[in-house]
Design a protein around this nucleic acid. Structure first.
Lengths: 128, 128
DNA sequence: CGTTTAATACTACCATAGTAATACTACCGC
DNA sequence: GCGGTAGTATTACTATGGTAGTATTAAACG
């Protein structure tokens, strides 16, 4: 069993994963560019993070000439699921209703969004 | 402004906060006991964590004889909101529908829970 | 060919979370 | 009053995330 512990991703690591999910086979320079100039990071910072993340099994690379082409080694669904479940379990004891209730009371919600939610729930209901 | 950065709580820290929200004015021994014997931690581990958390402004204490009585210095709502928002923003770009959709597809959901969610949404709708 | 240069590798910090042993200290019971 | 004990204080160590400088190497260009 792998048991990647696919939660516990730092902010930068998650941003890098997002880049790799969208652009597989990215070089260090590609990732740095994709993070945008707002994220004022050194080239070597990204390179180091990618190496550390590869150690952890989050990403992998293949060689292309002198360059490494990195790609995500775990899917977005797995990470999302891991991180979300972790939070829901830790903070709301796994109660779905508690999470949604919390979200509805603490965030700005538009009428459109509410309609969207109703649709989601109706669909799920039919599926049961 | 304090800007407590009220997310980024480790697991143990969150468990301690939960204890203090339920039992204010708890001693180190009280917290340790409340965490249960399953959590096999040393007395000094809790004491150290509490001191570190006090440095960060998460908890505070008052003196009672030789003992410190600890209480939470930030509310449960603030922590929940901070942690949840952080995750929703980082992982789902702030989209409520995306979060709920994800929760519905990745977790076991009972018909009762769905009904509960519908009720929550209906209530919110009326409130707008 | 030799030199610039672009790539990775190595090393080194700092911060925070978690964990705990050890040291100090003051009260309480005898 | 003295010693045990119940507290806190100090110190320390591991792991991980973030950040980046320096070293090395190999390719490319003239």
């Amino acid at each position: 069993m792998k048991k990647t512990k696919a939660f516990r991703l730092g902010d930068l690591q998650l941003r890098i994963m997002k880049v790799l999910w969208e652009h597989p086979d990215a070089t260090v320079a590609d990732v740095l560019a994709a993070l945008g100039p707002n994220a004022d990071l050194a080239y070597t910072t990204i390179a180091t993070m990618l190496r550390k993340m590869e150690e952890r099994g989050l990403v992998a690379h293949r060689v292309d000439g002198r360059s490494f082409l990195y790609h995500a080694a775990v899917g977005e669904a797995e990470i999302s699921h891991g991180m979300t479940s972790h939070l829901v379990d830790r903070l709301f004891e796994g109660s779905l209703a508690d999470v949604v209730s919390h979200l509805l009371t603490t965030r700005e919600v538009s009428r459109d969004e509410l309609r969207e939610l109703e649709k989601l729930i109706a669909a799920k209901k039919k599926q049961l």
